[in-house]
């Protein structure tokens, strides 16, 4: 085999390897959602965030529009303060939109669902969502269910 073919095949091999890496990075990992850093940041307070984590998705009607960028505990209101970064193209959410912590599927991960409100004014960088609904904690639901059953009897 002559040197030229050899070089060509090796070049193809290296290119294929890099292409495979690129494909893995782009199509199966979350590299695509890294761009969210230039989005605008809004905040929300929750009594209980359940299993929500930094980098959990933020979705509206099930479509991912941003991600959670920070979670902290607010010592003044004794609440969880969740900061999320919303992709810049989704910049027309009314200011009275509500945020709830939902679970995808029965055992799936938790994410924040945004429900648009009706005001004319929009959420901007630094805004805070006032209407929030905490995560459902399975133990509490089961507890309530048992009490209500007990009351019926």
């Amino acid at each position: 085999m002559n040197t030229r073919t050899l070089e060509l095949l090796v070049g193809l091999f290296v290119a294929a390897g890099l292409a495979a890496l690129f494909m893995l990075a782009m199509s199966v990992s979350n590299l695509a959602s890294f761009g969210g850093d230039d989005g605008y940041v809004i905040k929300a307070r929750f009594d209980n965030i359940g299993g929500l984590k930094v980098r959990s998705p933020v979705a509206a009607s099930g479509v991912r529009i941003g991600r959670v960028s920070d979670i902290s505990y607010d010592l003044e209101g004794f609440e969880a303060l969740v900061t999320m970064s919303i992709d810049p193209q989704y910049n027309v959410f009314p200011i009275d939109s509500s945020a709830s912590i939902l679970t995808s599927g029965l055992l799936g991960e938790q994410y924040i669902g945004l429900e648009p409100g009706a005001e004319e004014e929009f959420l901007v960088a630094g805004s805070e969502i006032d209407i929030t609904q905490s995560a459902l904690v399975l133990e509490e639901i089961i507890g309530q269910f048992i009490y209500s059953k007990a009351d019926e009897e």
């Binding site: 893995l24 990075a25 199966v28 990992s29 979350n30 590299l31 695509a32 890294f34 998705p57 991912r64």
Partner: peptide, 19 residues
Amino acid sequence: FWSQAQSKVELFEDLGNGM
């Protein structure tokens, strides 16, 4: 298929460590 993978697979954590 693709979106589930994208939401769960970390670039550095998984792909990077594998490499």
